[in-house]
Amino acid sequence: MNGIVNVLLFMVSCVFTNNFIFSKFLGCCPFLGVSNKVETAASMGLAVTFVMTIASLFSYMVYHWILVPLGLTFMETIAFILVIAALVQFVEMFLKKASPSLYGALGIYLPLITTNCAVLGVATLNVSEGYNLFYSVLNGAFSAIGFLVAIVLMAGVRERLEGSKIPECMKGFPISLVTAGLMAMAFMGFSGLV
């Protein structure tokens, strides 16, 4: 029973308390770049979720089963980049064959994820926090869901901003950055939760 509660708490903390964008400030580029429309933001979020979950699994395996036994832990960054790049490529091929409609919807976002620091971030954090395989994958999946929540919320706010009266000097990116800052402060409210 205690174990289940722990897992649930871990999930909540990944999504809200330790939100990747609002408390770790990782993955800010797609967060600002692809949050113009809720639809595209959700596509991007789902693609990131998919890749982050699998990347956590594979980076764990590469780190603990190859790098640690050989004493090459200093190579984690470059090895993870290799893993992520190959993985994204594989996922793209797989989706093209298995689900052309999903491939069309994710489109250009898939290759973009290769350079998303949130994916590399989750792999490195898994190592530095010392999570086991189960928690690594859980961390990957639910951190990514946190990213999804953040980017969809941001897109919703930005869609409203489109139609509202904003001073000339604040139009476009300035108001988006202010919004992101306010959202980050609101998410700080979750910090006492877990």
Partner: peptide, 23 residues
């Protein structure tokens, strides 16, 4: 060697996947 081997391994997997999932 390890990095090279990883690279070759991923390369082979991707080549195979490319053939297998060829549209």
């Amino acid at each position: 060697v390890v990095l090279g081997a990883l690279g070759v391994l991923f390369g082979l997997v991707l080549t195979y996947a490319g053939k297998k999932f060829h549209v």
